[in-house]
């Protein structure tokens, strides 16, 4: 049960980070991690079929698509992309 609590918290934390980080590349990598951990959650929920699909499609395929798109959309690697002031979650610059 403790494991599940940790997993749930990690998922929420990861989601928070991946949606608010100022670096697109980092965001995509975080998203792939998020997908893999989500697959773990599916296993805990006794849904191995979904876990497999999540790992292969949710994390793998979607991740690959996102990485490819990022490379084409922002070729000059990580241009900081901070949401307009006051409208987004606080920029997490303080933590890294």
């Amino acid at each position: 049960m403790i494991f599940d609590h940790v997993l749930a918290l990690t998922l929420v934390g990861l989601a928070w980070r991946l949606l608010s980080t100022s670096h697109l590349f980092k965001a995509v990598v975080l998203f792939i991690t998020f997908g893999l951990l989500l697959a773990l959650a599916w296993v805990r929920l006794e849904a191995p079929d979904i876990a497999l699909a999540e790992a292969a499609i949710g994390a793998g395929l979607t991740g690959a698509l996102l990485l490819d798109a990022r490379a084409r959309l922002e070729p000059r690697d990580d241009v900081p992309d901070i949401a307009p002031a006051g409208s987004g979650p606080p920029a997490p610059d303080a933590s890294h």
């Binding site: 991946l18 995509v28 959309l73 992309d81 949401a83």
Partner: peptide, 23 residues
């Protein structure tokens, strides 16, 4: 995810938000 979908401007981030929303 919902929050991010509304406030993020970059298209890639909106797509990420949508995926989180789906999961």
């Amino acid at each position: 995810g919902f929050h991010a979908l509304l406030v993020q401007r970059h298209l890639l981030r909106k797509v990420l938000a949508l995926n989180v929303l789906g999961s």
